[in-house]
Structure formats: C-alpha cells, structure tokens
Amino acid sequence: MNGMMLAPVTSMHYLVLSLILFCIGVVGVLTRRNAIIIMMSIELMLNAATINFVAFNGQIIAAGGHDNHVGQIFALFIIAVAAAEAAIGLAIVIALMRTRDSLNVDEIDLMKG
C-alpha cells in the first residue's frame, strides 16, 4: 500500500484539540440558556483540562523528565470529581424543577437589583 504518510501526533495537536474543546465550552456557557446544556458545556471544559494533563504527562516523560505520572493521576481525579459535580448539579436542577416549569436561566430571576 502506498498509503498516505500521516504526520505523528505531537503534544501540539493535543493542545490545539483541548483549546478548541475549552473554547466551545466557554462559548456554550456564555450563550446557551438551558441549564442542562450549560452543564454539558462545563463538562467539555473539564475534559479539555483532562486531555492537557495526560498529553503533557506523556510529553514530559518523552523528554526524559522526572515525572511520577502526576498528570495522569490528576486526570483520574478530575473524572471522579466531575461525576460528583454532575450528580449535585442534576439534583439541584430537579429541586428547581419541582418549584417551577422552566430550565431557562433567563426566567430564573426571582431576585434582582
């Protein structure tokens, strides 16, 4: 097969990917009005950080640095905490839905000033 020559995946590729994910997440939080979609956008931001930690860990090891896999450990903790955060977020949404019918954050405006 005279297949296509694929460039090796470098840490720069991971960084660009995570930056794109992070920006999608930020824009989602700032522009979407549904609370659930905002939560999904926040998950994207956390996942962008996870990708960074794992990719940088690989880069540091490849460069021969002294690293005891802090980046990967950090990534595992992020996954665990993100799950706890989602559980609490959904519980709050359910509590809110019992007192009103909308999840549009623009209509959640009892307090002003």
Partner: peptide, 13 residues
C-alpha cells in the same frame, strides 16, 4: 472551576 483547572493544566505543561 473549569477555567481554574485549565489554567492549572497549562502551568503543569
């Protein structure tokens, strides 16, 4: 938290 964490990951890198 997401913003803070992304900042931490860049500092780690």
């Amino acid at each position: 938290t997401g913003i803070l964490l992304y900042g931490m990951s860049l500092i780690y890198g």
